[in-house]
Design a protein around this nucleic acid. Structure first.
Lengths: 341, 341
DNA sequence: GTTTAGGGTGTAAACGTTTACATTAAGACG
DNA sequence: CGTCTTAATGTAAACGTTTACACCCTAAAC
């Protein structure tokens, strides 16, 4: 691959001049510029990001470290971040930890070696051990979705608690009294907050907290929804609605309902959380609490780039609203609760 | 961030020695090694990939250039590639062209500047102009999913033609005689091959080719399925089955059926193509022709790395089997064709 | 006692850039 | 005709590695 020196030689100028035309810095006469451009074309030269990065000590590369690329929520997040970064002329180094803390640690080390200018980080698993490794190195980090409160960093999350509150309240307002709630994994910060929102809604409605209906599990999400819904819906006093704390769990619940021959939303109402693309593709379309995924990605990117330009700005913590999106999987309870007839 | 020189200084050795312990190349006495490791720990030093890359002239980074990251098929592909690359100690630079050839061109330039060791490439759009830019630079490339026949590169595709043949034949074997086929976009290589498979199946079954039932469109996939199915299913002699040349199209068809109150697979059979994760999440679960996505990603990675180690090996073209996956969205025709009753 | 072998270590060049600084030439000004 | 600007260009150092080469030392072999 051609180097700047070869270009200089061919154009009969110094490397400095070539560099000047590449970066449009400093003055260079029209005819020389002409010659340089021609030479670059001829040799099909592309300036090396390695040399440049070394000299400038910046790589224009951002690491995006997430628990699992294959999950729709994260792949949407990455997509939005990548898009925003591209617009600002940054590259995206994707790192999927596959829900494995050891692999996450390995990736952190790699990101440090790569000298990425910053990291957008959704921590994996329960422990925050890996976060500290990142922080120790003074790379700018913005934390997304999952909170690790002990560290001073920029944060972008959504209001899981009040989102869940709204979702649950909606179900209650529709007349549901026996509402199953399914969440997991139980160490997830977001899920815990959502559960808290559920409890508050119950309390505000002066409804008792039936612990048989509040289920936490660690299965893979779809499976979790399917299994626990099966358990819930085959009880004598089955719930008339189920609040799945994740859209993927909701999809599992939908399958259970289908298996049991329950018609939605007539026989059972289902509410999800997240609003991944799948939520609009399911039948019936899922009523759910929407996280503003794209907005979160864009905001995280913005915060990160802002910090790159001003290392000492105060840390910001953004908590975006999660809002109820009413579609077709929830209906009023009175009409179809056999126990009320 | 610490440099090798600082580590050397602190450990009271030369940089060469430090480099030797980092890379485990050459001999170094136990006590010196000890000191060096301690110094690295103290300064929390990570060797710079920039310096190393410059010197070794390899970056251990692979570009993955795809049409659109948040399409399930591609995000699954990227996920599989990333996973395979990680295992071989390579990094993944994700580039989503967002179906825009100009943006694709920009990304190619970036990849060249980054001096990636190779590229896994799913071309965007109809023209192959961008491919040549890549080839001119002698970066190893493996082409996935979409063929651009004029160039000598390694290729990984799946057998779209015979996959579609199988899918269509299955429908025919089930007794369907009026089968709608929906595909798009019409410039897509894969879609064209699938259409060819459909035609061959029709011919082999000595069935006439009813052009009213063969629809190509350029809408966004879900929309395409929804709209054209609506058109197809509201005709007087509506099809008893629909072969959607893409799972996302099939999902659109499912929604149309639901809207029209058609029960699946009783009133209508639907067959998809791709077997994205969504295919098992839909209700009913989609009978579809499966592309071995993960296998394709893994194989592409393997071919690319093989070429890195041996630049002159012969080019390979792999055409993986697409196989029919029978689930719940297809049933026999005789039972529910009103015109046969 | 001299040679030899090889383990252990250091020196310095090279990789491809950017950029501070030096240099040149040409015109403006007195 | 000297002096001063200023535009245009070049030189060389620095960024952080790896590695060829040179060197020293110890112990074995003769």
């Amino acid at each position: 691959m051609a180097t700047i020196k070869q270009v200089a030689e061919r154009a009969q100028v110094s490397v400095a001049t070539v560099s000047r035309v590449i970066n449009e810095t400093g003055l260079v006469s029209p005819d020389l510029e002409q010659r340089v451009r021609a030479a670059m074309e001829d040799l099909n030269y592309y300036p090396s990001a390695l040399g440049r990065g070394l000299r400038r000590s910046e790589t224009m590369t951002i690491g995006v470290l997430i628990p699992e690329l294959d999950q729709p929520f994260f792949s949407a997040l990455v997509s939005s971040v990548e898009s925003a970064l591209f617009r600002q002329d940054y590259r995206t180094l994707v790192c999927s930890a596959e829900e494995d803390p050891a692999r996450e640690a390995a990736y952190i080390q790699i990101l440090l070696q790569q000298r990425v200018d910053g990291v957008i980080y959704v921590p994996t698993g329960q422990q925050a051990g890996n976060v500290s490794k990142l922080r120790k190195s003074s790379v700018p980090v913005v934390l997304v979705d999952r909170d690790v409160s002990t560290y001073q960093v920029d944060k972008v999350m959504c209001d899981n608690e009040s989102g869940a509150y709204e979702g649950m309240s909606h179900l209650i307002k529709q007349g549901h009294r026996r509402i199953g709630v399914i969440g997991g994994p139980d160490y997830s910060f977001a899920i815990l907050r959502r559960m808290a929102g559920v409890r508050r809604a119950l309390a505000d409605a002066a409804m008792p907290l039936n612990s048989q209906f509040l289920i936490m599990g660690t299965l893979q999400q779809f499976e979790l929804g399917y299994q626990t819904a099966m358990h819930l819906l085959t009880q004598p006093e089955r719930p008339t609605a189920i609040f799945a704390l994740t859209d993927m769990i909701a999809i599992g619940v939908l399958h259970t309902a289908s298996r049991l021959g329950l018609h939605l939303p007539g026989d059972l109402s289902v509410m999800g959380f997240d609003d991944i693309p799948l939520a609009t593709y399911s039948i019936p379309e899922l009523t759910t609490v929407a996280q503003p995924i794209y907005e979160m990605g864009a905001l995280a990117t913005k915060l990160l780039l802002a910090r790159l330009h001003d290392h000492d700005r105060p840390y910001e913590q953004h908590i975006l609203d999660a809002r109820l999106v009413v579609r077709n999987s929830v209906a009023g309870a009175a009409t179809h609760d056999p126990l009320l007839k």
